[in-house]
């Protein structure tokens, strides 16, 4: 039995130590907002915040999580930066199909939490690993800048 701290709540889960965190979140804890994309940390759809750092939950084994706190898309608005990002996303209607967007929002939140005024290069460095099949990249960049302006 392992204890996971997800969105401020403790969950005791009985899972093998090598089960990827994404499986645990979706199938055991029941939080399905985080998506499975490629399964090899190359698309970013499964991004969650682990102690505030955006990491790919599809290749993160349970055993490596330890006692670190997890924030998923379901609770991102509890973070000041997350709330601003969410508002900017809605205002600019960033998503098209939406599948990659929980990962995009999480990565953007991670970026703004540590760098409140990112330039284009900072946005590229932080967001390049989050792929959008619909090509919403210009709106993602605009929304990050708007959230920054709103004081994220």
């Amino acid at each position: 039995m392992a204890r996971l701290k997800v969105n401020g709540q403790n969950h005791d889960v009985d899972v093998p130590p090598d089960m990827p965190l994404l499986w645990v979140l979706r199938d055991v804890v029941g939080l399905t907002g985080t998506k499975f994309g490629c399964g090899i940390a190359q698309c970013g759809a499964c991004t969650i915040l682990l102690d505030g750092k955006p990491v790919r939950s599809c290749v993160l084994p349970m055993a490596a999580v330890g006692s670190r706190g997890i924030i998923t898309i379901e609770a991102v608005d509890a973070m000041p930066a997350g709330k601003k990002v969410q508002e900017a996303w809605t205002a600019l209607e960033v998503p098209q199909c939406g599948y990659c967007q929980s990962g995009q929002i999480i990565s953007a939140t991670g970026l703004l939490s540590r760098n409140p005024d990112p330039g284009d290069a900072d946005i590229d460095a932080a967001m390049a690993g989050n792929i959008c099949r619909c090509g919403t990249y210009p709106r993602i960049r605009a929304a990050i800048k708007q959230a920054a302006k709103a004081g994220a």
């Binding site: 970013g44 955006p54 990491v55 290749v59 460095a125 390049a128």
Partner: peptide
């Protein structure tokens, strides 16, 4: 392709 796990400062992000 690499930074999301390895990070930039050599400490490693994912693991």
């Amino acid at each position: 392709a690499c930074a999301s796990c390895h990070g930039w400062n050599g400490e490693g992000l994912e693991h």
